[in-house]
Design a protein around this nucleic acid. Structure first.
Length: 303
RNA sequence: CGCGGGGUAGAGCAGUCCGGUAGCUUGCCAGGCUCAUAACCUGGAGGUCGUGAGGUUCAAAUCCCACCCCCGCAA
């Protein structure tokens, strides 16, 4: 099949690679290179880098709302467009241009977690499982009819990175299967719809008054991005991993209750920090951190 | 030229402002003590202080210059 692929971040790369292996990817759409990283260097998206490595033509329109962009898209005469974390809304004319329409690879078990950040929201919510849904796109936000689903477990120690990687590989597998079998589309259930709001950076600031279990979920959900953090004397400290402790405390939220980085949280619960990072320093385990740190129990993180 | 922090024993840090024989915690090795323990005691090995047979100096981890690498913010 002649396929147009539309995607941008790391998550879409395995899907693109699988498609390139099994089909003819005639063109890749991705977000334009933007100044990013230290020094404001302009970097192409992971998908663009992959496409260039595979020798596939790349297009990076800023929008698909303009008629000429849509005409260009239609002129490719694709059999199908596979969309995976592209980052642009596809207008009706684009959705209808390919013979088989546009098929989306979404990182959740729809209709749960429609929207931008399904991976992180699932972890934050304490879901026991996640998955990938392949669906036929329509004008709604992740509301199209479903073709295939694949599930995957979430444990208390699953980080967004881990789930991201698992789902990306499941997605790559499923899209190939979906294109081969072309299953009959099924309507999404009307029950169980939730929306995964885009992650705001402010959410990564730890609120120590929450119960330890919720703080831990947030930490796992925000690892590796944007990474949960707290502040101590004005310095930002990122927290990558933590465990809920069996201990309880009556100390105020945010207080270090021992010298092994156990922190008082809401409802008298305690969170034990496992991996953290100071500004300008690399990430390290709590043990390593304490060896050269003057932090003592009784000190308190900003709430 | 976006802003900023850092590169000192295997690991984590202090020392750098106010140049003068390199220190702390831990780990490692050896020995001791103990029913036992992330226990304790004693001794020991381990460092071209990111690079440049660079500059200044009687003397540079420390001051100056250039370069390399890591990281936080921002995007």
């Amino acid at each position: 099949m002649n396929i147009i692929f539309m995607g941008t971040p790391e998550f879409s790369v395995p899907v693109l690679e699988a498609l390139a292996q099994h089909h003819h990817v005639i063109c890749v759409y991705t977000q334009p290179p933007r100044p990013s990283g230290r020094g404001h260097k302009v970097n192409p998206s992971p998908v663009q880098q992959t496409a260039e490595r595979l020798g596939i033509p790349v297009r990076t329109p800023v929008s698909l709302r303009k008629p000429d962009a849509q005409a260009e898209f239609a002129s490719l005469n694709a059999d199908v467009a596979v969309v995976c974390a592209y980052g642009l809304i596809l207008p009706q004319p684009v959705l209808e241009a390919p013979k088989l329409g546009c098929i989306n690879v979404h990182a959740s078990l729809l209709p749960r977690w429609r929207g931008a950040a399904p991976i992180q929201r699932a972890i934050q919510a304490g879901d026991a499982e996640s998955g990938v849904t392949i669906m036929k796109m329509d004008v709604g936000l992740d509301t199209g009819d479903m073709l295939l689903k694949g599930a995957c477990a979430i444990t208390p120690d699953t980080t967004a990175q881990m789930l991201h990687d698992s789902l990306a590989s499941i997605g790559a597998e499923l899209i190939i299967k979906a294109l081969a079998d072309l299953p009959t589309p099924q309507k999404q259930p009307t029950e169980g719809v939730t929306y995964a709001e885009k992650i705001q950076k402010e959410e990564a600031l730890i609120d120590w008054s929450l119960p330890a279990i919720q703080i831990k979920r947030n930490i796992m959900a925000f690892n590796p991005f944007p990474v949960a953090y707290t502040t101590l004397n004005g310095e930002r400290i990122k927290i990558y991993e933590a465990d809920v402790s069996k201990a309880t405390t009556s100390l105020p939220a945010g207080t270090l209750i021992d010298d092994t980085l156990s922190v008082a949280c809401g409802d008298h619960t305690v969170l034990r920090i496992r991996k953290l990072q100071r500004e300008g320093k690399r990430a390290m385990t709590a043990e390593e951190f304490m060896l050269g740190s003057s932090l003592k129990q009784g000190e308190r993180f900003a709430v």
